[in-house]
């Protein structure tokens, strides 16, 4: 369970162009559920996602992850928490060009010093699960949008994290691939994972597998979304 208490995130704090991306926000995300953050661009939902995933710290307020207060953790613990708890799928996938699909998937485990063959096996198994094992040795720049996303998902899952975080996952996909993505998400939910996504795609937030939709506008949660 992830709980936000009165969280504010201000960019360029103290400067003239300071603005509050998130303002005094309370939020609860339940474990083993799918939560969608929806809202127009610039509403602060991506910022919210970075706060949930421990990639940025709030300016004020507190965030609890699994009943642990994380806002005051030193950087090293935050990194450790990101490694153990969250898997990220970025909107632009953020794969590292020039590396193969397999190498990209293995990336999060690379600095941990585990035997490489073991990591390879796990990465390969994930690629099989996502049906792109045939592309394992291709360079990522040769992939189609759907394949790139599966690679990004495989990379997010290689740590076997309890929480998967995805930023606009269907923005670069056509309808068929978007449905395929939702199937993957459903499968993950069935395995007991928590999923947090941002999306303004109705195909996502209207889906029946989604447990909670939170509408964000101007850094606040809208109580009565249309």
């Amino acid at each position: 369970m992830i709980v936000f208490e009165n969280v504010t995130k201000t960019y360029n704090e103290g400067a003239e162009n300071a603005f509050n991306a998130i303002l005094n926000l309370d939020l609860t995300i339940n474990s083993r559920e799918i939560t969608v953050l929806r809202g127009p661009s610039g509403s602060g939902k991506t910022t919210l996602l970075t706060l949930i995933g421990g990639m940025a710290r709030p300016t004020s307020g507190r965030i609890h992850v699994a009943e642990r207060e994380v806002t005051s953790l030193p950087e090293r613990f935050l990194t450790k928490m990101r490694q153990d708890t969250f898997g990220f799928v970025f909107q632009s996938f953020n794969l590292i060009k020039g590396l193969s699909v397999l190498d990209n998937v293995m990336l999060p485990l690379t600095p941990l010093g585990r035997p490489r063959n073991q990591i390879r096996k796990e990465a390969y198994a994930l690629l099989e699960r996502l049906h792109i094992q045939s592309k394992a040795h291709n360079l990522v720049e040769t992939l189609s949008g759907g394949e790139a996303q599966r690679t990004a998902i495989a990379r997010a899952l290689i740590n076997n994290p309890p929480v998967l975080i995805a930023d606009e996952p269907t923005a670069n996909l056509d309808t068929g691939l978007s449905y395929a993505f939702m199937d993957i998400i459903k499968e993950l939910k069935d395995q007991g994972k928590t999923v947090v996504m941002t999306s303004h795609d109705p195909l996502v937030w209207k889906s029946e597998i989604v447990d909670q939709v939170i509408s964000v506008r101007d850094g606040k949660i809208e109580s009565n979304p249309t």
Binding site: R76, F88, P108
Partner: peptide, 14 residues
């Protein structure tokens, strides 16, 4: 820079 950002985002330490 982008690459360093990605590595940090996927859990690499400084």
């Amino acid at each position: 820079r982008q690459e360093i950002g990605i590595l940090k985002a996927v859990g690499w330490e400084t």
